[in-house]
Simulated scan of single mutants.
Amino acid sequence: MEKINNSDKFNNPMHQIDDWEENLIERYPDPAADTKEKEEFRNYVDSERVETVREFYRINHTYQTYDFVCEKEKEFLKFDRKEMSLWEAVDFLNTLVDDSDPDIDLDQFQHLLQTSEAIRADGHPDWFVLTGFLHDIGKVLCLFGEPQWAVVGDTFPVGCKFSDKIVYPEFFAANPDSTNEKYNTKYGVYTPNCGLDNVKMSWGHDEYLYQIMKDYLPEPALYMIRYHSFYSQHRENAYTHLMTEKDIEMFEWVKKFNPYDLYTKAPIKPDSKALRPYYEELVAKYLPAKLKF
């Protein structure tokens, strides 16, 4: 396998880690978009941004191998990097704000509030609201030195054939697992309908946060966290052959969460000071005072 380039340009080709989410909105536009005024939307059609996202996926698809995921699990699932309350983690995550972003100046806390407040406004259970609030906290991986391509992006199973429904599937040709007979068949190291809990996903903030939260939140919330970036399944149904009936049932929650994740970002700042007491109480209801990251 080719040695990974350690240059910052290689590891972090996007201008900011949220560029890949904006690319998602281009790929999966809001069904209600035609009912909104043009000025309500940010301009996501930017040739330079598209090229950096494309380069991001070239690197991601080349190096997200089964062995790489196993190594990252050993490295990070010891949870020995930092012990923080959720609020300390939010403050920590806020250091990811990119002042050079010309489109929007909301910090990560306000982005999280936009998602959770939209869920709350629609009358969903409080655990669903909390899930919207914390679903991206796993991006603190960037602050532990992880490159963008191992933190964000569409997720997908490793250890079996890469689906052509994954974004930029042509880049998997450079992934050594594509020519490894152990991993390049339909089922690879898995068995039919073995269940997603037995399937290793590409490494990133989704799996990392799931592992942190798995003892504290209801099962539908954990599916939302763990698979909200698994677009080749919840949009394309590319891996149903690995799923159990329970997985399929739980993915209805993932699909319910997805529009809140994608379409609630706007330049209007939530009143974080007024909202904080509600979220402090909600966080205290479900989570311990300190979490290990």
Rank of each mutant, 00 (worst) to 15 (best):
K78N: 11
W20K: 10
D247T: 09
W20H: 13
D34L: 14
F133S: 08
V69H: 09
F133H: 15
Y44W: 03
P267D: 15
Q110D: 15
T131H: 06
E219F: 03
E22G: 07
E21N: 03
R226W: 01
Y66W: 09
T240G: 15
G145D: 09
H241E: 11
K269A: 15
F171M: 02
E117F: 08
H135W: 08
G145I: 09
I17Q: 12
C70E: 14
T185W: 07
N12L: 03
S47Q: 11
K165D: 14
S178M: 13
A32F: 15
E281D: 15
K292V: 02
D98S: 08
W149C: 06
S7W: 07
F251W: 13
R27W: 14
E181N: 14
S100C: 00
V90T: 12
S100L: 10
P288M: 06
D8M: 00
L24I: 09
S202C: 04
P125H: 07
K255M: 08
H135A: 06
P176R: 00
Y227V: 03
R42Y: 10
D91Q: 14
T52N: 13
A289H: 03
K214G: 04
K255G: 09
E55G: 00
L141W: 10
E245S: 15
A174C: 01
E21W: 02
L113E: 03
W127D: 15
W87G: 06
W203C: 11
C194S: 10
F172Y: 13
D67R: 12
F156N: 02
R54L: 04
E2K: 05
C194K: 10
V158C: 04
K182S: 01
R81G: 02
K3S: 01
Q110H: 14
